[in-house]
Write a protein that binds this DNA or RNA. Structure first.
Lengths: 249, 249
DNA sequence: CGGTTCCTTGAGAGAACTCAACGTCGGTGG
DNA sequence: CCACCGACGTTGAGTTCTCTCAAGGAACCG
């Protein structure tokens, strides 16, 4: 984890570090990756010196103002959430390396949520105004961005189904395993409370389901460290969410 | 309703009708609307003779194959849904005039759902291959499409919260009133079962909530016809979904 | 090593679901 | 034209899943 070598005290000074895509730990997942050398150069130039190092709890954006920029996560973990009148927080999404923050805000006057770091993170900042200009000149990037939004949309629609706690948690574990490129063992960056909020469950329910999974031999769970023992078993549970059977009415 | 003048028997013959944006009943909501005359002409040319008239139950696309085209709804109402192993249908989205079908499929190899007409409908078909070419030449259209996807994404994320049956139904009624441009009185095109599936509720729960709303004087409800008597009351209920209070943690 | 936050487990409550029955609407065919 | 049929809508009773409330233990930070 190269990023962990940045102590928090460097956040401000390092915030003006020149981003270097060729040094980016998330290059393989970045929407800019896979575009031509030329387009990547455009992107890199437009980024300028925009790189931020949010520490846990630090807010990147909130609903008080229009989102001025997209952020691509280089390292760490962030969340987007809303807070209702009773003060209950609802996590809308987790952002891991390679993910793009703010795609749900480009069509809105006000950003509908607050974004905060869960663990110390690195993000590349791209102002939306500059992005609009950039998209005119970089068709591959445009296409990547559209496909990224499309996948996000499909994912959000899939998760919006009416599923049991076990199905949700199983799908979440599989999704995290995939997104973190973890084989078997993974370290969940976020607390149970956030997982629960994201999956629309109570914190206790998430705990109970994890315990049940452990008793069934599907996983072992030691706080943040989860080891997937029976991925097929989890997939069986998560199937209605991940790959629903598709038929005509 | 100009569309109702198309009897179903004309479906096949009319399927090759030349689309005319200047005659489109949904022009005001279409993503192509508002672009320059030039871009609109590009779009219209690319559409060719692609216009379909799905009748109720007719399937536009299903998960068996990659989605080959986007569809813009000219008239009617369609739904996108999945079917799980138990045969339960889950409605992912409703599409009304001006809506774009398939935005959630551009990043996926296989379309994740089935799309079928609820009422007799008219849709413009735009092949994705042609669309990709078109987007290179029509920046305003690109931007509209991105903003549309962004709003869809934000909407999907908002609805994915953990809300009560009353909050969901209230938000749904307000959303339908807005999308159908109905002032007070609206005709819901879809059956209760589909509403329930979309809101992740049981059909009976939707009925009960509507009855409760009627008893409270918020609405009157006569089968498909709903009249909103107290929009502010509904907004009060739906507020956590529509406009969550946004604060930093 | 004290305090706080997080995780876990238990007991009771409540919201929505399932099952079941009945009324209504719309299309079809006799 | 009307009776029939199926799908849809509505209401009631009982059940279940998840939530809330509560408490204890573990991990982390100052």
């Amino acid at each position: 984890m190269p990023f962990d070598t940045f102590p928090e005290s460097q956040s401000l000074s390092a915030a003006n570090a020149r981003p270097r895509c060729d040094l980016c730990p998330a290059a393989a997942q970045c929407p800019v990756g896979g575009t031509s050398r030329e387009e990547r150069a455009c992107w890199n130039a437009a980024l300028g010196s925009q790189i931020a190092l949010p520490v846990p709890g630090k807010v990147l954006a909130d609903g008080a103002a229009p989102l001025q920029a997209l952020y691509v996560v280089r390292a760490g973990c962030l969340k987007s959430f809303t807070i209702d009148e009773q003060g209950h927080e609802h996590v809308r999404a987790f952002y891991l390396p390679g993910d793009v923050i703010g795609l749900d805000a480009m069509g809105l006057a006000l950003y509908p949520a607050t974004v905060a770091a869960i663990t110390a993170s690195q993000v590349c900042r791209m102002s939306i105004a500059e992005l609009r200009l950039l998209l005119l000149r970089t068709p591959a990037l445009t296409q990547h961005l559209i496909e990224r939004m499309s996948r996000d949309l499909a994912g959000a629609l899939a998760l919006s189904g009416d599923y049991t706690a076990e199905q949700r948690v199983a799908a979440f574990l599989l999704s995290m395993e995939r997104r973190l490129h973890a084989a078997g063992q993974l370290r969940l960056p976020m607390p149970r409370r956030d997982i629960a909020s994201y999956l629309r469950l109570a914190t206790e329910t998430v705990c109970r389901v994890l315990t049940r999974f452990e008793d069934s031999g599907l996983i072992t769970s030691d706080n943040k460290i989860v080891r997937v023992l029976d991925a097929d078993g989890l997939r069986g549970l998560a199937q209605p969410i991940e790959s629903p059977v598709l038929r005509a009415a």
